[in-house]
Amino acid sequence: MRSASIPDRRSLDGFGLGTGAEAWRGAVVRAVAMACAAAIFILPLVWMFSASLRPPGLPPPIRFELWPPEPTLANYSAIFGLLPLGRYALNSLTVVTAAVPLTLLTASWAGFAMAQLPRRVRGPLVAVSVMSLLVPVMSLWLTRFLVFKWLGVLDSLLALIVPAALGSSPFYVLILYWAFTRIPAELFEAARVDGCGAVRIWWSIGLPLVRPALTAVGVLSFVYYWSSFVDPMLYLSDQANYTLPVALRTLQQLHPSRWSLLMAGCVVVTLPVLLVFGLAQRHFLQEHRGSGWLGR
């Protein structure tokens, strides 16, 4: 027996309402599903913020606590007293300000150059790129240490920025390579006929057409450099050069009864990332014109 609340499909269709009602139902289901998915990802952020308001010195809560009993903002001022967070934040900003644009420049050069090569040459290069992604990062620590020492950049922020001069990661190069290969070759050919050089074609034709992929690489490299902990830990010896992830790790070593300070630190470190993602997400998730990330 059909419930009275569920309308008859044929009768609705007869009035031309079927499509609208189904679309409405679909929209509701979709919205609920999206809200549930969003909640899963937002909940840790909400918990991080509420835990940052918990007075320090109390044993950690044993169950999920959405709001602490006596919320306080004192943890935020306390962490700036415990650690030179302002200095560390400035260092982190310096690193991302230099490393992210440099990554975009070098990774897009490499990706563009690869995309212009004959197919028989590209294949092995892509294979080398993918294989290089499989190299365990810890196997590079010592070699990099020696290279940085030889370059004389140990113990300076340059040690954190230098990888950007090499594209930061083969993955970023590959993203841009794939994006460039989706641009019709005729476009580049036409530009060449018009007398454009390689740099002009890369700048005026290539880059505007791979903007979503470029944004994706920008966001990914921002997150990488912003949250990189091992590099400053290994290659810096002067406290004054430390970046924010080291500060977080230092706060994490506190007794669990003081982890509200760690959570306050997490909020401070996470906010800029959220801000960058908010600003970039239009490009990052762009769907119109079939040109989301990877130039779909």
């Binding site: 050069w109 490499a110 290069l125 290089s132 990062v137 290279v147 990888p163 990189s228």
Partner: peptide, 20 residues
């Protein structure tokens, strides 16, 4: 172009961000 691409690719092997 091949030279540039090779140089960047080989160099970037040493810069793969991984499990940090």
């Amino acid at each position: 172009r091949l030279s540039i691409a090779l140089a960047l690719l080989i160099a970037s092997v040493g810069c793969a961000p991984g499990a940090d």
